[in-house]
Nucleic acid binder design. Structure first.
Length: 262
DNA sequence: ATGGTAGAGCATCTA
């Protein structure tokens, strides 16, 4: 199974590019974030034409997450299943695809450490941790995929000094991510490249940062033990940013061996 | 010099 996660930064603006990239990459399951669409506007027919079932959880102007699958799409859960009030923002979608419990997550940005949105981000991560208890099992194949808006370590940042005191690198965010991992998940990309820097998945549009190599690795696939053992390779496809008006994120591609081969 | 660009949507907010 080939599993990908990609923050597309508006599916309206990016549909042609996303269709083209999916046709080339041939993922079995694709988790998308920042579709910026209402459910009624989600282009399910375009993905059906490529051979994918799809599920979308959106609100319109901002946020919005989707899962595409050509290996089945069942038991879809929009948002949190923790029994608390509905998340006011559409940032989480869960489905079972090809025997894997898959989540497409768009973690809040946080804006600044002093901003209310940063507290929302920390609470959101704790809710995601509790959501896992309800919808998934760390001893079964589980993949939490998405834009975490957290650089797990300083190796995931172009210059730790430049971002010190900002979101994405603060200890509380990294500790919250650590609690997700402690549930029984592995950062499958980092586990394959434990010491390699400059392997980024996001670059600020401004100041030509992509071309200067100034980015962060904030797009992650977190896999439970039974799934992490099946990873044969993983890559961040910077080629998806070729040409005009790319997303500010590159897709992460994870290749998994069949269950019986692992 | 707190800059710069992109998306949504039409004034700014978000990232």
């Amino acid at each position: 199974m080939r599993l990908v996660t990609w923050n597309v930064n508006s599916l309206n603006a990016r549909l042609g590019r996303v269709e083209e990239w999916i046709a080339e990459c041939q993922p079995d399951v694709a988790c998308l974030q920042e579709t910026k669409l209402a459910d009624a506007a989600f282009p399910s027919m375009a993905f059906a034409a490529l051979g994918y079932e799809s599920a979308h959880h959106g609100e319109g102007r901002w946020n919005g997450v989707a899962i595409l699958s050509r290996v089945g799409l069942h038991d879809v859960v929009p948002g949190f299943a923790d029994g608390e009030s509905d998340d006011p923002e559409a940032r989480l979608l869960t489905a079972t695809c090809g025997g894997v419990r898959v989540m497409s997550a768009y973690v809040p940005n946080g804006r600044s450490l002093e901003h209310e949105h940063y507290q929302y981000k920390l609470r959101w991560l704790e809710r995601l941790r509790r959501h896992l208890d309800v919808v998934a099992d760390p001893t079964a194949p589980t993949a939490v995929c998405g834009d975490f808006n957290i650089a797990p370590t300083d190796l995931d940042v172009w210059d730790p000094k430049a971002v010190h005191g900002a979101t994405h690198v603060s200890p509380p965010e990294r500790e919250a991510l650590g609690r997700l991992l402690a549930w029984g998940l592995a950062d499958v990309f980092r586990d394959r490249f434990p010491d390699t820097g400059r392997l980024f998945s996001w670059w600020d549009y401004r100041a030509g940062n992509f071309h200067k190599g100034l980015g962060m690795r904030i797009d992650l696939v977190l896999a439970s033990g039974p799934l992490a053992r099946r990873v044969s390779w993983a890559l961040i496809d910077r080629n998806a940013r070729k040409g005009k008006l790319p997303s500010d994120h590159a897709p992460l591609v994870v290749q998994l061996e069949d269950e019986d081969a692992a």
